[in-house]
Design a protein around this nucleic acid. Structure first.
Lengths: 208, 208
DNA sequence: GCAATAGTGTCTGTAAGACAGTATGGT
DNA sequence: ACCATACTGTCTTACAGACACTATTGC
């Protein structure tokens, strides 16, 4: 590797290189509220992250950091954006690739989740990253029914509505919502036996 | 800097670090056709790019590489995504932050522009980057009138329509288009003297 | 019967898309 | 007068948002 040269005839290793980190906003809905998984540093709270290891994929680094620091497994990270302000990290030249992971309720333990309304003053530029992650998640749920597969495999429309309301941060009308998402879902023959009231039809996502 | 330690008590410099590059798809409309600015390597054509210099911002690296390799100046790069496949560059471990720059016709010389239809087989993963750049540009012009300020400061609706048609890669209906964008523009009192036919009103972008 | 939840009929407004018309300039 | 271009009236379709109504269950 070190013998190869680029077009301006410098060794790749001659270039100063930044430390490359991944930082991940793990978002989940708990009791109708949008929450984020935080970890505690020496002084301040921050998003879980790590430096990338040699020849490791960014997505793999995200999964490794979530496993090691937050005991979260089996999710699909989504790359957001590189944060590269030269002095964002006081320890040195560190650029961070921000990621978003949406977590179904089952995959995450309760204690680590902090409601969005209680989050302020995270370390580094993690407030910015979190803001971007939330608006990205909101936009993707405005665009389709359950892009992150937070529900499943079978669910009622009310469950889906509650998920959307939690993510949007405001209550949504049930009839409008119903007609908006019906086209993206497939009906099943099954019903959820209502604890009270008319039983609700169960739906699933398209394509198995 | 080297005296600071992270939470797992390793020096920042102890981590292996990737070379970090920026590669940029410079898109411009020339004679009604969407084009991209390419540079020639030893063997294959590629997007202009460079390695980031120490403590340099990614956007600054993009501007520097465009200035040095393609003599393009004064534009606003937009970050797309990190490409991090471990073997995307045969010279070593290189991750690339892909960027998009939309260039008004004046800012770029004719010779370097290649129509999109004639582009195939770029070096590295630059075909992928270019594909992402084009779909991103198309999406942003579907969403609003002239987000990249390719026209200006004054222009007719026909000029804007031709720009949109070139970016979309297909002709668009003029009456529908007119009503779609009118709300985002401000009328002026001026008219463009028609070479033939009724003179067209000149418009400008919102917010000065 | 009542309470509670599921689902529908229908009216509003808005916006896209298409067609054909009118308006205004140059020659 | 004629042509080419700029602009508008209007119809159709579709869909979001809201309200009220009907439907089906457990008790």
């Amino acid at each position: 590797m070190a013998t190869y040269r680029d077009s301006s005839d410098k060794l790749l290793t001659d270039y100063p290189r930044p430390s490359v980190a991944v930082d991940t906003a793990v978002l989940a809905v708990r009791e109708g509220v949008l929450c984020v998984a935080l970890v505690q540093n020496e002084k301040r709270r921050r998003l879980p992250g790590t430096f990338v290891h040699e020849r490791e994929t960014l997505a793999d680094a995200v999964l490794r950091s979530l496993h090691d620091k937050a005991h979260i497994m089996g999710l699909r990270p989504r790359q957001l954006q590189v944060f590269d302000a030269p002095n964002r990290d006081t320890r040195g030249w560190v650029i961070s690739v921000a990621h978003l992971v949406a977590a179904p309720q089952a995959s995450i333990s309760k204690a680590e989740l902090t409601p969005m309304s209680e989050v302020r003053g995270l370390a580094f530029d993690h407030d910015l990253i979190l803001e971007l992650a939330v608006s990205t998640l909101r936009a993707s749920y405005r665009a389709s029914a359950d892009p992150e597969r937070l529900l499943g495999p079978e669910f009622t429309l009310l469950e889906l509505l509650r998920l959307h309301s939690a993510i949007a941060g405001e209550p949504l009308g049930k009839d409008t919502f119903r007609r908006r998402v019906l086209g993206e879902l497939v009906e099943t023959d099954a019903y959820q036996p209502g604890l009270v009231g008319k039983p609700a039809k169960l739906f699933r996502h398209v394509e198995l």
